[in-house]
Design a binder for these strands. Structure first.
Length: 214
DNA sequence: ATCCCGAGGG
DNA sequence: CCCTCTGGAT
């Protein structure tokens, strides 16, 4: 995709949604971290169901520790990968209490040192909680980067670097959410809705036979 | 490279 | 049935 096309791409997404946000529900930085940790290979809808149950009972690291591993598992059992997530969240809460005064750290290194927190999760927290222009490459960004030609790459890290290089700085902070929402609702994995896509004109991928909405 | 792993959609 | 969902650890 040419620089001009990229400009049009994001200007179009911005016009349709000036202030994009995550659809994960949270009311503190810790809740955000916990929700993102739980969101691996799971839908926001599913995560929100579980965190609504969980955060009423435990919305701080210490309160989650007090639940115990089995108590925590019960609250998040409806999410995929729930056993490893419960274990990791518990270990992360332990570290937050012991090393960070119960607060969520603000640096990439400290975030990625937390069990269950990798580069993608750290990027989301840095972006959403601390306003940094990071690019968290999840399944949607990876697919769109390659499908549209915006940032082709064989690995998420390669796509991330290309996105950071190619997206105009003015769009960088919100780009992550524009791409995720576009991927979720329009440029879907199985069923890209090209006939109702606002950026199809500058996209390298176009469905040959656009299926009618019916 | 493989494992983890429930819910929802097609 | 199969695929996908804001991945990370081993």
């Amino acid at each position: 995709m040419t620089p001009a096309a990229i400009e049009t791409f994001f200007a179009t997404l911005k016009a349709a949604n000036p202030h994009p946000q995550t659809e994960l529900e949270f009311s503190s930085v810790f809740e955000l971290l916990a929700a993102v940790l739980l969101s691996a290979q799971a839908t926001d809808v599913g995560v929100n169901k579980a965190t609504r149950r969980l955060f009423v009972v435990a919305n701080t690291p210490q309160k989650i520790l007090d639940l115990g591993i089995e108590g925590l598992e019960q609250h998040i059992k409806t999410i995929g990968l729930y056993r490893s997530k419960a274990k990791h969240l518990m270990q992360t809460c332990q570290m937050l209490v012991e090393l960070h005064g119960g607060q969520v750290p603000r640096t990439r290194e400290a975030l990625e040192a937390l069990p269950g927190v990798g580069r993608k999760t750290a990027n989301v927290v840095l972006n959403v909680a601390f306003g940094e222009p990071t690019m968290a490459v999840d399944t949607h960004l990876f697919r769109l980067g390659n499908r549209t030609g915006l940032a082709p790459g064989k690995t998420p890290l390669e796509v991330e670097h290309k996105l950071l290089k190619r997206i105009p700085p003015a769009y960088m902070v919100d780009a992550h959410h524009w791409l995720i929402l576009h991927g979720r609702y329009v440029c879907q994995s199985r069923k890209p809705l090209c006939w109702q896509c606002g950026v199809a004109a500058v996209c390298g991928f176009t469905l040959k036979t656009p299926a009618p909405p019916g």
